[in-house]
């Protein structure tokens, strides 16, 4: 279980989500990584390019400061790591189950939050936008790929999510083992 908790430390170093876009005029590709405390471009200035590109159609600019999530998430994961370690030290299966439940709730909440941001980002277009395509909105996909005008945008989990996945699997394994042990008649 300690391992499961420590896995999450990886999230402080690697982004857990990526949105990449391809368009004819960006042969090298362009995109952004989402970390638990930041959003960055695939390349150093991609975020700036994305913001420039999006201003034609009136989309808001993406700035790290505008996301309260980045302030909260490092603490949330810090808490989860501490909680997980505590569960390991105490050897409490209940605590592990609680931990896992928290992770799942957080995951679902994260998805909902991400969707809501995407909706807002794609629909709340500036009335001053130079180009207005009637009936067009630009909500990025939650998961998978989507064609937005001439840009193909894809949204996928990234390295950080492997840590989450492994962590969850380990925790699940611990519970399963414990259950297996306790169910076995001694």
């Amino acid at each position: 279980m300690a391992l499961a908790a420590l896995m999450l430390i990886g999230l402080y170093y690697q982004p857990f989500w990526t949105i990449s876009m391809s368009a004819p005029q960006y042969p090298e590709g362009i995109g952004m990584h989402i970390h638990i405390d930041n959003v960055t471009g695939h390349n150093r200035h991609d975020l700036q390019s994305i913001n420039t590109l999006n201003h034609y159609i009136g989309m808001a600019e993406i700035h790290k400061e505008d996301f309260w999530e980045f302030d909260v998430m490092p603490w949330v994961f810090g808490f989860l790591i501490a909680f997980g370690l505590l569960a390991a030290v105490l050897g409490s299966t209940k605590m592990v189950i609680t931990w896992l439940a928290l992770m799942v709730i957080l995951g679902v909440a994260g998805f909902i939050d991400f969707y809501m941001w995407g909706y807002e980002y794609g629909h709340n277009l500036s009335p001053d936008a130079p180009i207005k395509v009637p009936g067009m909105s630009y909500q990025p996909p939650l998961l998978g790929c989507k064609q937005l005008l001439n840009i193909n945008a894809c949204s996928w989990p990234y390295i950080g999510s492997i840590f989450i996945g492994l962590s969850v699997m380990l925790a699940g394994g611990v519970i399963w083992l414990e259950k297996f042990k306790s169910n076995r008649p001694n």
Binding site: V104, L143, M169
Partner: peptide, 13 residues
Amino acid sequence: MNNNKSNTLRGLL
């Protein structure tokens, strides 16, 4: 359910 989620992730990856 937990395993489901990680399966989904694995599947996606």
